[in-house]
């Protein structure tokens, strides 16, 4: 299993830099983006496994960014980071394909726990897809893709 690559998307620069340093110290490879647009651009050149996405951002907001990510990179797992008042948007996010959500203020352990959980789920799905390939079918069953 390859090393988990993560991307943090938030408009708070200090949060990005500190969290990136902490996660890197824990051995994760971390990208940061301060807007939805930047995140999408960055994904093109630096694919990741898990995106931690702030719901409330200026410009393209979290849910719109999420939809775009899932459209372009269906295998990328997204965790929504939300303030309580935007629980509704977190729910919208879950419906639009986010795998989980984190409530602000979230501590590092929580972030890692959810990110790892998401990564494992992704790996699990990939394994199944791999297994399906092994059994001879060239294409993965459509329902599995959808589930992802």
């Amino acid at each position: 299993m390859e090393l988990m690559k993560m991307m943090l998307v938030d408009d708070e620069e200090r949060f990005l830099s500190t969290t990136k340093k902490l996660l890197e110290r824990k051995g994760f490879e971390v990208q940061t983006a301060s807007s939805g647009k930047e995140a999408l651009d960055l994904l093109r050149t630096h694919p990741v496994h898990v995106v931690i996405l702030d719901v409330k951002m200026p410009g393209m907001d979290g849910v719109a960014t999420l939809r775009e990510i899932k459209r372009q990179y269906p295998m990328v797992e997204v965790i929504m980071l939300t303030g309580h008042a935007t629980m509704e948007s977190a729910m919208d996010g879950l419906k639009s394909g986010a795998v989980d959500y984190l409530m602000k203020p979230a501590n590092l352990e929580e972030i890692i726990e959810k990110a790892v959980g998401a990564y494992n789920r992704r790996a699990d799905i990939e394994e199944k897809i791999e297994a399906a390939r092994m059994q001879g079918s060239k294409e993965p069953p459509p329902e599995m893709l959808e589930q992802a």
Binding site: E12, R14, F15, T18, K104, P105, L108
Partner: peptide, 12 residues
């Protein structure tokens, strides 16, 4: 919540 989030990260 946003500054709290940062404080939390800084604490870590």
């Amino acid at each position: 919540n946003n500054p709290l989030q940062i404080i939390s990260s800084e604490r870590s």
